[in-house]
Amino acid sequence: MNEQQFQPRIIAFCCNWCSYAGADLAGVSRLQMPPDFHVVRVMCSARVAPEWVLKALSDGVDGVMVLGCHIGDCHYISGNHRAAKRFALLKEMLSYVGIHPDRLLVEWVSASEGSKFQRLVTEFVERVRELGPSVVSSQ
């Protein structure tokens, strides 16, 4: 596949209360961004099971974003703390199993940060483009 034409496939897990609302605000504000990502709504970033990320990457998804409320602002008190810890470990692990850790992004987006959502998506899509197709999706 020609690198110019590479359209990465990306899943963005967004929590209902902050990052999904931030993504909605980006939409309401008509902030344009690459169409390569697909939002999957969960109630809290702590719901995102590491298995989901592994499943996505091993099924051929080229990058996964996990977006939650800012630390301290979690609707469920401490869910994003859990997510932060879980995915820090998972990122470490990814490099051991031969997946570039940059294919997983964990970030915090509040309900008022539509422009941050746009920036994160745009930068992440760009980064995944640089990394190229995942081992699975390139086959």
Binding site: I11, V40, V42, M43, C44, A46, R47, V48, A49, P50, E51, W52, K55, A56, D59, V61, H75, Y76, G79, R82, R86
Partner: peptide
């Protein structure tokens, strides 16, 4: 309904109504 316990369960015994592992894994596939 945050689902934190579901992601933490090491045996897949805990699930969340409307956000089960099976449902989300199917979406991913």
């Amino acid at each position: 309904g945050c689902g934190c316990c579901v992601a933490a369960c090491p045996n897949g015994a805990m699930q969340q109504r409307g956000f089960t592992d099976l449902q989300v894994l199917r979406m991913i596939e």
